[in-house]
Amino acid sequence: MADSGTKGIKTVLHPVADLEKAKAVYTALLGVEPATDGPFYVGFDAAGQHIGLVPGGGPQGMTSPVAYWHVPDIEAKLADLLATGATVKEPVRDVGGNRLVAAVTDLDGNVLGLIQD
């Protein structure tokens, strides 16, 4: 395999129906105010993790939370996963700030997110 290392799961995105109500729930849960607070995304940084709220599942159409594995080389990790039979759910894309994201579906239908900073 080209690159077997990850930096672990540090980001979890949650689709939400009502962003304001969800923001209140996660603020109470995490005990911190959002680090990012916009109409299309609210993000919290707590205990070394990033928790994101995505209204309506966002453009990627999330229907359940997605954990994102932080990797040093997203293209190599994507190739490793595809070689095992995983399929691309979201191709690699730049979401700004030199951050690349992608997602695959494993053989059991689970969505695995990837992030490269």
Rank of each mutant, 00 (worst) to 15 (best):
A22S: 11
P65F: 00
A2N: 14
L107A: 10
K77T: 11
V12G: 01
K10Q: 13
A102N: 05
D117F: 10
M1W: 10
M1R: 09
T27S: 13
Y68H: 07
A24N: 04
M62R: 06
L114P: 02
D117H: 08
F40W: 14
L30E: 07
A2L: 14
A83D: 09
A102Q: 01
P39E: 15
G96P: 01
Q49P: 11
G31N: 11
G97M: 03
K89I: 02
N110M: 10
G61L: 13
A24R: 09
T6P: 00
A24L: 06
Y68S: 05
G58C: 06
R99Y: 14
S4H: 13
V71C: 02
R93F: 03
A22R: 02
G58T: 08
A2F: 14
D94E: 10
G96A: 02
A79Y: 04
V54P: 00
E33K: 13
V71Q: 03
L81Q: 02
E90G: 01
L13D: 11
I51D: 07
V32G: 06
V66P: 02
Q49W: 11
G58N: 06
Y26W: 09
Q60G: 09
G56T: 08
D45G: 13
A47P: 04
H50K: 13
W69M: 07
A86I: 02
H70W: 14
V88C: 01
D73W: 02
L19M: 06
V25M: 13
G85I: 04
D94H: 05
G56H: 06
V32P: 03
N98A: 08
V42M: 13
T84Q: 09
V101I: 15
G96H: 05
L107H: 07
G38S: 15
